[in-house]
Amino acid sequence: MLDKLFKCKPSEIFKLLSILRVDLYVTLYYIGFSIPMVILSQLVQDKYCINTLGVEVSKCVRLESLGPEFEDIKNSVLTYSTTFAVYDRLTTASPGIILSLFFGHWVDTYPNHIKYLLALPALGGCLSLVTTILNVYYFKAHINHLLWRSIPYALTGGALIVMSGSYTYVARTTQPKYRAVRFAVLDLALFLASPVATAVTGKLLTIKPWLPDQPRNYLIVLFVSFVCYLIGLIWILVFVNDQFESAKDSSDNV
Rank of each mutant, 00 (worst) to 15 (best):
D3E: 12
L5I: 09
L5S: 04
L5W: 07
K7G: 10
K7M: 10
K7V: 10
C8I: 11
K9P: 05
P10L: 06
P10E: 05
P10S: 05
S11P: 06
S11F: 14
S11D: 11
E12W: 03
E12I: 03
E12F: 06
I13E: 02
F14Y: 06
L16I: 09
S18L: 12
S18G: 06
S18R: 13
I19Y: 10
I19A: 03
R21V: 08
R21T: 11
V22W: 05
D23N: 14
D23Q: 15
L24W: 14
Y25M: 14
T27Q: 10
T27D: 04
L28R: 04
L28S: 07
Y29K: 10
Y29F: 15
Y29M: 11
Y30W: 12
I31A: 02
G32Y: 02
G32E: 05
F33H: 08
F33A: 08
F33V: 02
I35E: 07
I35F: 09
I35T: 07
P36S: 03
M37G: 11
V38I: 11
I39F: 05
L40K: 04
S41Q: 09
S41R: 04
Q42G: 04
L43R: 02
L43Q: 03
L43H: 03
L43M: 10
Q45G: 13
Q45N: 09
Q45V: 13
D46W: 02
D46Y: 10
K47H: 07
K47I: 11
Y48N: 07
Y48C: 11
C49H: 01
I50H: 06
I50G: 05
I50R: 09
T52R: 06
L53I: 05
L53T: 00
G54Y: 00
G54M: 00
G54D: 00
G54A: 01
G54K: 00
V55H: 03
V55G: 01
E56V: 08
V57L: 09
V57Q: 11
S58K: 09
S58C: 02
K59Y: 14
K59H: 12
C60R: 02
V61R: 04
R62W: 05
L63R: 00
L63D: 00
E64A: 07
E64R: 01
E64L: 09
S65G: 00
L66S: 01
G67Y: 03
P68E: 07
E69A: 15
E69K: 10
E71K: 09
E71P: 04
K74A: 08
N75E: 15
N75W: 12
S76Q: 07
T79D: 15
T79A: 15
T79E: 14
T79Q: 12
Y80Q: 04
Y80C: 09
Y80N: 06
S81H: 01
T82M: 12
T82H: 06
T83L: 10
F84A: 02
F84Y: 14
A85M: 07
A85R: 01
A85I: 04
V86Q: 08
V86F: 15
Y87N: 03
R89S: 12
R89Q: 11
L90S: 03
A93I: 13
A93S: 11
S94E: 07
P95Y: 14
P95C: 13
G96I: 12
I97R: 01
I97N: 02
